[in-house]
Each structure stands twice: as structure tokens, then as C-alpha cells.
Simulated assay, not measured.
Amino acid sequence: MNAQNLKRQSINPPSTQVFYDNFHFSQATRVGDMIWVSGQVGIDANMTPANGIEEQAHLAFQALKEVLKSAGASLVDVVELMTFHTEVQGDMPAFAKVKDHYFPDRYPSWTAVGISQLALPELRVEIRAVAVAGCGDA
């Protein structure tokens, strides 16, 4: 692999520019075929948290999907998920059901962590991912 392929690229879909501008982080960073996606949460276009774990999980996975697309990848390229839950025991069955909708087979590795709080008090889950562009096509 030549050095040109190893240049660091910040990924910020237009709908996420507010995060980059206000909080100074990229939604994802790509180096070569590797993509590290920042935590995605269940908020709508007005920055309002969705109600309930299933709705938040769907919005977070949709955001993950959008960031991956902007990085030249898709959900099939995800090799690792890390999820952070404020109500891990109570929410896990519903969250797992939503996760299985987005990953019906070829499951990525997954670590779920219980935490006391996320950036907004109404948020119940945050999803990080690592992907390798093109690996899901094989």
C-alpha cells in the first residue's frame, strides 16, 4: 500500500456539519480502507432525542448508515460495534432486536457497555463502529 492510500480523511456528511463546527470532531475518520465511526445517537433532524430505546436505536443505526455511505462503505463492511447503554439490562432485548434488523447475518463483533449517562439526559444508547470498506462484498 502506498502512502497516498494512508492519508487520513475526515468524514462529515452535510447533515452532521453542526457537530464538526460546534464540538470539533468528525463523524468518521478513514485511513486506507479502515473507517472509525464516532458514536451515533437517536436524535432527529431537530436534534431532539427520539422516544424509547427502539426508536433511538433505529435513528442511531440510520445515522451510522449515512456516515458509512459518506465514507464509501456500508453496514455490511462493519467489523466491530461498541454500544453504550444507560439502561443496559432493561433495554438489551429491544436493542438487540433492532440491531438484528440492521445486521441480519454476518454479525460484527459487539461490545455493549452500561454507563450512567450520555451527552443528553434523554439519550439511552450510543453506537460506535469500525468498518473496512469493501470487506462485506467478499
Rank of each mutant, 00 (worst) to 15 (best):
111 T>G: 14
86 T>K: 14
102 Y>H: 12
84 F>D: 05
60 A>N: 11
121 P>C: 14
107 Y>P: 02
60 A>W: 05
90 G>M: 11
119 A>R: 03
107 Y>G: 09
73 A>R: 00
79 V>A: 04
79 V>H: 10
68 L>Q: 00
108 P>N: 02
113 V>W: 03
112 A>S: 13
107 Y>C: 09
81 L>C: 05
63 A>C: 04
102 Y>K: 14
78 V>M: 06
63 A>G: 00
59 L>S: 05
84 F>A: 12
113 V>L: 08
70 S>I: 01
57 A>L: 08
69 K>Y: 00
68 L>I: 02
115 I>P: 03
112 A>E: 09
76 V>W: 00
104 P>T: 12
109 S>K: 13
104 P>S: 06
113 V>Y: 07
92 M>E: 10
96 A>D: 09
112 A>K: 04
60 A>T: 09
97 K>Y: 11
120 L>M: 05
87 E>G: 13
87 E>K: 15
103 F>G: 10
108 P>V: 02
97 K>F: 05
70 S>N: 10
79 V>L: 10
86 T>L: 15
100 D>C: 06
106 R>P: 13
112 A>V: 09
102 Y>S: 13
107 Y>W: 12
107 Y>M: 13
58 H>I: 05
81 L>F: 05
78 V>W: 00
83 T>G: 05
69 K>N: 01
108 P>W: 01
91 D>K: 12
61 F>D: 11
114 G>F: 07
97 K>V: 09
70 S>D: 06
118 L>R: 10
87 E>S: 15
121 P>G: 12
63 A>D: 00
71 A>Q: 04
58 H>S: 01
92 M>Y: 10
94 A>K: 13
103 F>L: 06
116 S>N: 11
104 P>I: 05
73 A>E: 00
92 M>R: 07
93 P>R: 04
91 D>C: 10
56 Q>V: 06
101 H>P: 08
65 K>S: 14
